[in-house]
Design a protein around this nucleic acid. Structure first.
Lengths: 281, 281
DNA sequence: TTGAATTTTTCATATTATGAAAAACGCTTT
DNA sequence: AAAGCGTTTTTCATAATATGAAAAATTCAA
């Protein structure tokens, strides 16, 4: 879907020092390693691929891809299903990746708050942050109901079609918002998706005013979502908390009922990470 | 804790075909890639390391480690904090790793492990999770013996009278345990059932210490059961594995013999689902 | 400014990653 | 059973490139 080949290198200048020249870090990338990581990434996107297909799709020889896979397998990053001869992402990759969450205490702090939110509302609670212009879902607490909104952690989603995404955008500085919007094509996922830039800006203004956002079947038909922003110590929106559920249980009338617990949870998390809500402008 | 350096290669023989020779897959591992993955893994274990320390600890030159990190950074697998010059696991690693979860369920992961457990012990192996204060049996692999412990998948059972239930309770947070116990009446099923709250708490402490639980005819007269907990990525006990059999074949003396395979199986499943045992307190 | 510590870059070299092709292997067909 | 076919491993020669030492660049602290 997005970048596959060369990794985009920017701004890893030590101590944030500026540089006149273009970063020549490309000279510093290790080709074989980068190709191997491309394989890993590609493999993670699919669910089970045979060796030859990977080699084909990546434009590398089967022998090389084979060795890459065997090496990664040695560390559990990928695994091989002897039954149907398919390669897959392995638990080791998950273990490593999951440690990303541990880095910030955000997820840990959020868990009890999310659990309470789920119990109060009865709907699945989600936690997400912004990552390179998309919403990255970090954690969720599922409802007990049989019909569930399921957004597995690790999922990336377009910001304009996400409750958390819109809550985050609503509190971005103007220029940063412009950059994010410039990258986005405002793709339509349902006929409720906001695809018009001005309409989106309008919605964001409303969200800022009332303190929470509504995803009204904008990403998935039949699913509504209510989200609120979480702020860090500088008053920047760094995360969002939401509840999501089927339209049958989350009607427009329910929004009023659900918005309070959501904004409360967001405030509680803001406090838990030592953040402060920004001064209203 | 366990294997850190060289990845352990075993059994990625296609279609389970046997081989006379030792697997020479070690010849197929790509050294540079393996070293790079060691860096990634090492970095994930810590939370923020400067370049020089990584190089030192890995016994590689700073230049090489630098190039590895820059390459990985290009794909978001690691990131660099210009503020304090520290390298960290990046969101890209989480995105890739999280896709592991989408693939197979706990039950699928458990099946081969349970089969081996059954073969090692000769007794029926069971898998269960907690569901609303009860143990829900998800799967079992039956022994070949004619006298069998039979717990059909889907069965709900009281936690306090179940090996798996007690293993799960032993690793619950205090307040959650209180809530579960509050709901339970500690009903007696046999005259071995633990109906006293303090006696149960005592048993749970023992279970935590030795790593496995024993159901000594507490649910069904004539049946013993040994269970161990399975942990998820957060170190929470999310499932339990057990073997159960008639008292004739599972005597108190047999417990010592059987407990090792059970705890091993639980550990294997923990690893297979990308979980980690919690830090002992 | 000078100095110390860390990082990037340069460069020559040997390591080793790589692809072609052959071998081994599993599954299907005759 | 045996042969055929599509895979996956292994072998091997070669070129690519990963690597470390040391120099250069950079930042922070006095």
């Amino acid at each position: 879907m997005d970048s596959q080949e060369s990794g985009s290198n920017e701004g890893r200048r030590a101590r944030g020092r500026p540089r006149d020249w273009h970063d020549k870090t490309e000279q510093n990338t290790i080709k074989s390693l980068d190709r191997a990581m491309a394989v890993l990434e590609y493999l993670s996107r699919s669910q089970g691929l045979p060796l030859t297909r990977i080699a084909e799709d990546m434009g590398q020889s089967p022998a090389t891809v084979y060795r890459v896979l065997v090496t990664l397998e040695g560390r559990g990053l990928v695994e091989f299903d002897g039954e149907d001869q398919l390669w897959n992402i392995g638990p080791g990759a998950f273990v490593i990746g999951a440690r990303f969450l541990r880095r910030t205490s955000l997820v840990d702090r959020a868990r009890p708050i999310m659990r309470k939110l789920m119990e109060d509302t009865g709907e699945t609670a989600n936690l997400g942050i912004e990552k390179e212009g998309s919403v990255l879902f970090l954690s969720q607490v599922e409802t007990h109901e049989t019909i569930r909104a399921f957004f597995p952690p690790g999922t990336l989603s377009d910001m304009h079609a996400s409750g958390i995404g819109k809550a985050l955008m609503a509190h971005m500085e103007a220029d940063r918002l412009q950059r994010v919007l410039a990258k986005s094509s405002l793709q339509a996922f349902t006929d409720h998706t906001i695809t018009d830039r001005d309409a989106l800006l309008n919605d964001l203004a409303q969200i800022r005013d009332r303190g929470f956002s509504i995803d009204n079947e904008e990403r998935t038909a039949g699913m509504r979502c209510i989200a609120a922003p979480v702020f860090d110590m500088n008053g920047e929106a760094v995360a969002g908390i939401s509840v999501s559920g089927p339209t049958s249980r989350v009607t427009p009338e329910d929004v009023a009922r659900l918005s309070a617990p959501v904004t409360e949870a967001a405030k509680a998390l803001t406090q838990a990470i030592g953040g402060v809500a920004p001064a209203l402008s």
